[in-house]
Simulated scan of single mutants.
Amino acid sequence: MLLPDSDTDFRLLDGGTTIPPELKGAIVVIGNFDGVHAGHRVILQHAMDLAAGAVPVLALTFEPHPRTVFNPSDPVFRLSPKLEKASLLRACGLRGVLNWDFSREFAGLSAQTFVEDILVGHLAASHVVVGYDFHFGKSREGSPAFLFAAGQSAGFGVTVVPQVNLPDGLAVSSSAIRTHLMNADIRSANNELGYHWFVQADVIHGEKRGRELGYPTANMKLSPHCRLALGIYAVSVRRHNGTLHHSVASYGRRPQFDNGAALLETHLFDFSDDLYGETLMVTFHEFLRGEARFDGVDALVAQMDRDSAAARRILQAALPLSPLDARLSFQP
């Protein structure tokens, strides 16, 4: 939904796909970029500054997440799955994303082969930009120093961006942001992302209990690997037509009723249209409370009234965290 079908200038490519002529010789920025957080965007901005509008910038990233490949019994809780990540990178001004298939076989390539076959042979990179901790190739033999030397031999430039810290001195990392979301610390997660975290999914049919309680909801199944803390949240919803709606959402197992599989149930304020089958973008602003079981339906509805009032107050006062955040979650 964030990546318009009409956007023909941005290319979303899979590994091995022939690179279109307009992206050959691009400045290539490499990383997993899960979440495209504030630290990632410093790296991306270095690439954009180098390009100065004269050369395209292309992200080389990897799918599935390498940690999932090496530990499939514990898949990574993705901050931004493939399409959401591509949309975020596009919003940062990049001209394309190349998602290279990551496997144990790929991880076994030598660093020299990665440079010769992918950076030079496949991409004809004119310059490569990476973070300070980027390593590649078998046994992580491809260090920043190795990349500098390889670039000198192959004829491409290399920029290594130092570690990025927030103004309070904290280092920014995808792992820390995942932990914040798992602990219901939405404020810290959003602060480190530099935008309000969001999910996207299709609206499905539910049990219609919310409608019976006076709180109809748009129900969405998130990834089974999502580890967002269960509870009630102040959220906003962007529809496929671009309209924004203040809302309150429950991500949980419904202890009052069935205690089943986790489901995101979102009530859009002052809204009555049919949303079934539509893809919604739900943006998380604030954690209100954890899931609870109440002494009857009346007590539950009374709490839902309080949750809705709190969400309205929070959302009315909400401000964007960055220009990117303004475009994603605030501008109609």
Rank of each mutant, 00 (worst) to 15 (best):
N191Y: 01
G137S: 05
R254L: 06
G194E: 03
F148C: 12
S223D: 13
L12F: 03
A145L: 12
E63C: 00
P332W: 05
F134G: 01
A184H: 10
L321W: 06
L58I: 12
S6E: 14
T279P: 02
G131Q: 01
R78D: 11
A52I: 03
L58A: 12
L193Y: 04
L193G: 06
D305M: 05
S87G: 15
A154N: 01
S73R: 09
G252N: 01
G157Q: 06
G231T: 04
G290D: 14
L13V: 14
V115Q: 01
E212A: 15
A107H: 11
R253V: 14
G137W: 10
V57H: 07
R78L: 15
E84F: 00
P81Q: 01
G296R: 06
N190E: 09
L44W: 01
I118Q: 10
Y195E: 10
K221P: 04
Y276H: 11
W197I: 04
Y215L: 09
H267G: 11
E63I: 10
Q316P: 02
S174R: 05
L170D: 13
L12N: 00
D274C: 07
R209N: 05
G121K: 04
A145F: 07
V161Y: 03
Y276K: 01
A309N: 13
N165D: 12
G53D: 03
P144I: 04
C92Q: 14
L315T: 01
R289Y: 07
E207P: 03
L12P: 00
H246V: 01
Y215Q: 09
D7S: 09
H225Y: 09
F136K: 09
T243G: 06
L79V: 10
I118P: 04
R211M: 06
V160W: 01
V36E: 07
T159A: 03
P320C: 10
R41A: 12
P72R: 07
P224W: 13
S143A: 06
P56C: 06
R67K: 14
A234T: 05
S143Q: 08
T243P: 00
G151A: 10
V158T: 12
T61P: 08
D273N: 12
R313P: 00
E116F: 00
L2A: 02
L79F: 07
W100V: 15
A249L: 03
L280N: 05
L44A: 10
L50V: 05
N99T: 03
T61M: 13
A171F: 02
S139N: 14
A47K: 01
L319K: 12
S110E: 09
K24E: 15
F257W: 03
F77S: 04
S139L: 11
L50W: 06
E207G: 05
V36H: 06
M304Y: 04
H267S: 07
L275F: 10
W197Y: 12
L88E: 02
G231Q: 02
F10V: 10
A171E: 14
A309K: 13
T266P: 11
V55C: 10
M304A: 08
G15S: 06
R313A: 15
D9V: 02
S236F: 02
